[in-house]
Design a protein around this nucleic acid. Sequence first.
DNA 1: TAAAATATCCCCCAAAACGGGGGATAGCTT
DNA 2: AAGCTATCCCCCGTTTTGGGGGATATTTTA
Lengths: 208, 208
Amino acid sequence: MSQNIRIVLIEDDDILRMGYESLLNDVAGFVVVNAYASYDLSKKHLDADRPDVILLDIQMPGTNGLQALPFIKKALPQANIIILTVFDSPELVFEALTLGAGGYLTKNSSAAKIIDAIKEVSTGGGAMSTNVARIVMRSFQKNLNSPLTKRETEILDRIANGQTKSQIATDLFIDQETVRSHVKNIYIKLDVNSKSEAIKTAKEKRFI
Amino acid sequence: MSQNIRIVLIEDDDILRMGYESLLNDVAGFVVVNAYASYDLSKKHLDADRPDVILLDIQMPGTNGLQALPFIKKALPQANIIILTVFDSPELVFEALTLGAGGYLTKNSSAAKIIDAIKEVSTGGGAMSTNVARIVMRSFQKNLNSPLTKRETEILDRIANGQTKSQIATDLFIDQETVRSHVKNIYIKLDVNSKSEAIKTAKEKRFI
DNA sequence: TAAAATATCCCCCAAAACGGGGGATAGCTT
DNA sequence: AAGCTATCCCCCGTTTTGGGGGATATTTTA
């Protein structure tokens, strides 16, 4: 048979921590190797714990979960970290994901969802609760009513990627003056008069 | 009692389409109002169908699912569209999400997951299968071993957002020459010698 | 079909930004 | 003690920018 999935819990609420521990220890194939009330309390032991999956709360005394994430990643690069928190603000979600969390669950998640998520992340998958998925998906969604044409969007996108007008002209096989002409129209449509304002406005309104 | 969730299927495979139809019609609170073998066949009827949720295949004769997405969004702005496909390449996933899909499921999803997903999106949530979640989460993850310092990352990020060195200097309350100095170091570390190369390299390596 | 929008190209100009080179200094970490 | 970091200073020539004024052909839309 395959090895047990080794789990570490880092959660400051005593009741919740014990609840998760007993819940997960009862799952076949799972073993909770340790449970800590804070990252600061856990850090000397994590190495010996050899966890496959870490359930990490954000709100904790001392180093909080998001601050701890990079340190855990560095100490245990192969471990998968699932954020388990009451917070689901876009800022926290994006920060956790950029820091390499393998999952983001809110604490209203059912026991079955948490168990599923642990199985998922330990096989390299991703896991998020539906409210988090909604936040993430919205962040991708472009404005389908952009006033910019295809060509203008293409050019503004390249400007946002640091290309100069002459580089864009070369890449698109058109004259620099053509690019300039498009840029003028972009500025008029976005009601701006500089590169940085155009990028800022376009990103805010999700035109690019 | 609340209204039924009105579902439309657009799926070219006859067996699958009928399978989904009978599966979903058996769910309490769901009603499959129509099922089409292609978007082209559906478009005249969608308005009358008044669907709350549309399950949309990508691979179809005529207009494919991703091409159809903007048209459906325009015709039925309140409808939630779930992409249901065999494909899970990052390109297709991101395109679907930028076009406003409310869910992205791969066809290996279980019946229960599909039913869950429909319930989720119709209450404004997001739904994705775990392989899709993995792709999405990876796209957020930053490189934690960036050679750039905090200050350098901050400055490069602002450059990537179209700010000039003097604007950056003003915003950060430092001298333009200090910004220039940081930029020089960024260029050396990234082995580039222009703004656009720096942005390109840094984005590729996920330093910003 | 007629009008509007789009994509393409041309000119002038001054101000700003860029990138390469050469430094210095203070503070913090190793 | 050495190295890195963040801060600031000067030189220089080249490129880019944005504002102004156009034109023309194709495509889309009304």
